[in-house]
C-alpha cells in the first residue's frame, strides 16, 4: 500500500477559482461598457443625422428624397443653381483641393524630411518647429495674415478656390510631419539609402524605390489626415470668400436643412470609404506572406 502526500497547492492556484472568474467577468463588463460609451459618442450624432436625412422634419414623413438629391447633385445643379449649384461647386472644389493638397504635401514634405535626416540633421529641430507652428495659430488669425497673400495670389494666378491648396498644405503640415517623422524614424534611412547609392541608384531612385515603399504606411497616414482636414475645412474658405464643400453645406443649410445634413453625412461616409480604400491600398501584403518564419 502506498500513500501519497499531496503537495501544497501553489499560491496562485490556492486562490478560489470562483473569485478569478468573477474578476474576469467584471473586467469584460468594464471593457464592454467603455466600448459602448465610445461607440455611443460617435454613433448617436451619426444616427441622428441619418434619421434627420430620411424623415421629413415638418410632416414626419419618411423619404429618401434628400439622398436622391445628393446622388443626382450634378443634374440638379443645372436646374437649381442657387442651392444645388453652390453645393455642387463646393464639392468639386473640395475634391480637387484634396488631391492637390495631398500631392503637394507628399512632394514637399517627404523629400525634405528625408534630406534633413540624411544630410542636414542640425536643421531637423528648425524644420520640426516650422512644421508644427500652424498648430498653434488659430485659423481665424491665419486668415488675417493670408488676406494680403491671397490678394497677390488672386492677381498672379486667379481667384479660383483651388489655390486654397497652398494654405491647406500649411494647415496639414503639423499632422503630416508627425506621421512621416514616425515612419522615417522606424527605418534605418541612412544605411538603406547608402546601400542603394553604393549599388548605383541616384537620389530620385533612392526616394522612389527605397524610401517611399518603406514609409508607405506613414505616407498613407499623412494622406488620411490631409483628406479629413481638407474635407472639413470651413473657416479659411468662408473668410477668404472661396467655395468649398463646407461653405456649400453652410449655404444650403439656410434654405434646406435636410439636404445640408444629408450632404454632411454623405461627405463623412465618402471620407470614411476613401480612408478605408487608402488603408487597404497601404496594407502590407508581405505581412501575411512573411508570417511563416
Amino acid at each position: 500500500m502506498t500513500t501519497s502526500v499531496a503537495a501544497p497547492p501553489p499560491r496562485d492556484a490556492a486562490r478560489p477559482q470562483q473569485l478569478r472568474r468573477t474578476m474576469r467577468r467584471k473586467q469584460t463588463t468594464i471593457r464592454w461598457i467603455v466600448i459602448a460609451v465610445i461607440m455611443a459618442f460617435f454613433l448617436i450624432p451619426l444616427l441622428s443625422m441619418l434619421y434627420f436625412s430620411l424623415r421629413f422634419p415638418l410632416s414626419g414623413k419618411w423619404t429618401g428624397q434628400a439622398w436622391s438629391n445628393v446622388i443626382h447633385m450634378g443634374s440638379l445643379a443645372a436646374s437649381d443653381p442657387a442651392d444645388y449649384g453652390q453645393l455642387w461647386t463646393g464639392l468639386k472644389n473640395s475634391a480637387v483641393l484634396v488631391v492637390l493638397t495631398v500631392v503637394i504635401m507628399v512632394v514637399l514634405l517627404v523629400p525634405t524630411m528625408t534630406w534633413v535626416r540624411l544630410r542636414v540633421k542640425w536643421l531637423s529641430r528648425t524644420v520640426e518647429f516650422i512644421c508644427l507652428l500652424p498648430l498653434t495659430i488659430p485659423a481665424i488669425v491665419l486668415v488675417v495674415g493670408l488676406g494680403p497673400v491671397y490678394r497677390i495670389v488672386s492677381n498672379v494666378l486667379s481667384t479660383n478656390t483651388i489655390w486654397l491648396c497652398f494654405v491647406y498644405v500649411v494647415l496639414v503640415l503639423p499632422f503630416a510631419y508627425r506621421a512621416l517623422d514616425a515612419g522615417l524614424a522606424a527605418i534605418d534611412l541612412t544605411t538603406l539609402s547608402e546601400a542603394a547609392r553604393s549599388l548605383g541608384a541616384h537620389w530620385f531612385r533612392v526616394m522612389w524605390q527605397i524610401v517611399l515603399p518603406n514609409i508607405r504606411s506613414a505616407v498613407v497616414s499623412a494622406c488620411f489626415i490631409s483628406v479629413a482636414l481638407v474635407l472639413g475645412e470651413f473657416t479659411i474658405a468662408q473668410l477668404l470668400a472661396r467655395d468649398n464643400l463646407q461653405t456649400g453645406i453652410f449655404l444650403v443649410s439656410q434654405s434646406d436643412g435636410q439636404l445640408a445634413v444629408t450632404m454632411s453625412l454623405a461627405a463623412l461616409i465618402l471620407a470614411f470609404v476613401l480612408l478605408m480604400v487608402l488603408s487597404l491600398f497601404s496594407g502590407d501584403g508581405r505581412r501575411t506572406k512573411g508570417a511563416s518564419t
Binding site: 544605411t191 553604393s198 549599388l199 541616384h202 527605397i210
Partner: peptide
C-alpha cells in the same frame, strides 16, 4: 552611384 564599388554595411542593410 558611379564608383562601381560593392559595399556591405555594419548594420543590416537589406531593403
Amino acid at each position: 552611384s558611379k564608383r562601381d564599388m560593392g559595399m556591405v554595411f555594419q548594420a543590416y542593410s537589406l531593403f
